[in-house]
Simulated scan of single mutants.
Amino acid sequence: MAKQEPISAASRPLKIVAGADAFGSSLKDELVAQLRSLNIEVEDLGTTKYYSIGEEVGRRVSQAANSNSSVETRGLLACGTGVGVAIFANKFPGVYAATCLTTAEALNARSINNCNVLAVSGMSTTPEAAKEILTTFLNTPFKSPCPASGSNPWPEDLQAFFEESVQEMSKIGNENAPVADPPCFICSLAKAREDKEFTPVDIMPGGSMKILRETPTSAILRFKAGSVEPAHHHTFGHDLVVTKGSKCVWNLTKREKYDLGVGDYLFTPAGDVHRVKYYEDTEFFIKWDGHWDLFLDEDVAAANAAIDKEKIDAK
Rank of each mutant, 00 (worst) to 15 (best):
S111I: 08
K247N: 07
P200T: 13
V71Y: 07
F185G: 00
G82T: 06
G80E: 02
A270G: 10
F236S: 06
F236T: 01
T125K: 02
E214A: 12
V300I: 14
S170C: 05
W250L: 12
A119E: 00
G261L: 14
Q167G: 09
E168G: 02
P147T: 05
I307H: 04
G173H: 03
D195V: 12
G94R: 11
E310F: 11
L27V: 00
L77D: 00
A106R: 04
P153H: 09
Y96P: 08
I220E: 01
R60N: 08
T243P: 02
V249Q: 03
S144H: 13
S149N: 08
K309L: 03
A109K: 10
T81Y: 00
N139G: 07
N114V: 03
D259F: 15
E197L: 15
R12L: 15
A301C: 06
P145R: 04
Y265E: 09
C100T: 05
A180E: 14
L189R: 13
L76W: 01
L107M: 12
E163L: 08
F198H: 10
E197N: 15
A9W: 01
S165D: 13
F161I: 12
Y258P: 09
I203D: 09
K171L: 13
D239A: 08
G207T: 06
L76P: 02
F92N: 06
K3F: 08
D239Y: 15
L266T: 05
Y258E: 04
E280S: 13
N68Y: 10
V179D: 02
I186H: 11
P13Q: 06
F198Q: 06
N152D: 10
C187K: 14
V117H: 05
E55T: 12
E175W: 09
G207P: 09
G261M: 14
L260K: 09
E283A: 01
T282Q: 11
P205D: 02
D29N: 10
P269C: 05
F198I: 12
E194P: 11
K309R: 09
V83F: 12
V17W: 02
C184Y: 10
S121C: 10
K244N: 04
S124K: 10
A303R: 05
P178T: 03
L189S: 11
E72K: 14
S121I: 04
T73M: 02
A301F: 07
D181A: 15
S149Q: 09
Q167N: 13
R255A: 14
R275V: 04
G75W: 04
A106C: 02
S208H: 13
I220Y: 05
S246P: 03
A2E: 06
E41D: 11
P200W: 01
A86K: 07
K49S: 14
S67D: 07
S151C: 13
A192I: 08
A10Q: 07
G19P: 10
L118I: 06
R110A: 00
V71N: 03
K49W: 12
L252Q: 13
T135N: 15
L77P: 02
D239K: 13
S227A: 15
F142M: 10
T102V: 06
E298V: 07
D272L: 13
T243N: 02
T81H: 12
E132T: 04
A148S: 15
G54W: 01
L27N: 01
E280Q: 11
